[in-house]
Amino acid sequence: MARSFKETLNSGKFVVTAEVAPPKGTNLKKTVEHIDLLKERVDALNVTDNQSSVMRFPSLGTTVLIKECGGEPILQMTCRDRNRMALQSDLLFAYTRGIRNVLCLTGDHITVGDHKEARAVFDLDSVQLLHLVRTMESGKDFSGNDLDGGVEFCAGAVVTPEADPIEPQLIKFDKKVQAGAGFFQTQAVYDMDNFKRFMEYAHQVDRNIKILAGMVLLASAGAARYMNEQVPGVFVPQDLIDELRSAPKGTALRKGIEITGRLIRQIKEEAICDGVHIMAIGREEVVPDIMVAAGL
């Protein structure tokens, strides 16, 4: 990939990112397969950081792997497991391995994962982590000491356009932009009218902010209902659930791919935002099918 992710973001092209999840263990076979499958097709690949607070192979290690495979990685960093010292060390290391993109997140709480009794760190929050990245870029560490050899990152953040209530979320979005977030990957969005309203707000905050709409593949009507009931800040409209339910037996996944493709196509055709971030959650192999369905 010749172009850096930052250049792609600024090129005006419809940006597509996807996500790979590191394995629980050292067997990287499937992860490498996913990387190889997607690295040429998308503009960058996110790597989740102990996703859902489940202990896994590190995000940092996987981004290095993506780099070795010739892909463009986005290092997801949460504040759950590391204090400000460990976060900085990891960023220094990441930089030396050619990793140039970092997505700053607060992280799920420890109690939702598989090490419930562990100590949750949260020394920083996502806004502070963005500040930390920007401070390091100025040649100083977060305590104001000089760095011997600096860093430069394309730092991004996340936002939940369907958060309820939305106002506190918008304030935080604003703070993330102020803190220097160059791009946003959103929580899953399905209702385009709601999403357009959010985009109006986003553009009021910053005309040039790059927003990639989160696209989570719905593999069945049950999964869609689960998202509505169990995942905060996600709203799947009833007509999509009905559409999934009406799919003949065994074709719900096909239908889900078609729906995701259709949403992406709408976002692109109506230029609602700058691109999409596709989260196939365990079905990374169908991402190319989604892209075909979207006409990408």
């Binding site: 607060t106 709480h109 929050d125 996502s126 506190p168």
Partner: peptide, 20 residues
């Protein structure tokens, strides 16, 4: 706040309740 955040709610906030 379950995460002790200083700069606003996380994405786990849900209709005024905490995800945790």
């Amino acid at each position: 706040c379950a995460k002790g955040l200083l700069n606003g709610p996380c994405g786990g906030t849900n209709k005024g309740k905490c995800e945790v």
